[in-house]
Amino acid sequence: MNQSVGKALKLLQYFSLERPKLSLAEIAKMSGLSKPTAYRFLKALEEEGFITRSSLAHEDRLYQLGLRLLALGNLVQEQIEVRKLALPHMARLRDELDEVIHLVVRERREAVYVERVETDRPMRLFTRIGLRTPLYAGSGPRLLFAYMRREEQEEMLRQLTLAPYTDATITDASELRQVLHEIRERGYSVSYGEYVTGTLGISAPIRDHTEKVIASLTIAIPGDTFQPEKTEHLIKRIRETAKDISRECGSMYMN
Rank of each mutant, 00 (worst) to 15 (best):
L160S: 05
R207G: 03
T37Q: 13
Y113W: 09
S4M: 10
L87G: 02
H102C: 10
K212P: 00
R19M: 13
R116E: 14
L217A: 08
E118Q: 06
I170F: 07
K236D: 15
F226T: 02
E81W: 09
R40A: 13
K236V: 06
Y192P: 00
I183D: 02
V190Q: 01
T197C: 02
I80T: 11
G223F: 07
L72P: 01
M254W: 15
L144F: 11
L162E: 08
R150G: 01
V105P: 03
E211S: 08
V112N: 03
I235C: 06
L103N: 01
A8W: 08
D172I: 03
Q13K: 15
Y188N: 01
E152S: 07
E182D: 14
L65Y: 08
S54M: 07
L143G: 01
V100T: 08
K35S: 10
L103G: 01
P20K: 12
D244P: 00
R40M: 07
V179I: 10
H89W: 13
D120W: 12
A137K: 00
S54V: 10
V114Y: 08
T197H: 12
R121T: 03
H233Y: 15
R53F: 15
G66I: 04
Q79V: 07
Q159A: 12
A220W: 00
K43Y: 15
R116Y: 03
G73S: 12
G223I: 10
I221M: 02
G73I: 04
A173D: 05
G250N: 09
Y39H: 13
I183F: 06
P205N: 06
D244M: 09
E151I: 09
T218I: 04
L157R: 00
Q178A: 09
D244I: 04
K43G: 03
K236H: 15
I214Q: 02
S16N: 11
T166M: 06
A25N: 14
G223C: 04
E182Q: 13
F145Y: 15
R94M: 14
S251A: 10
A8Y: 02
R19A: 15
R177C: 00
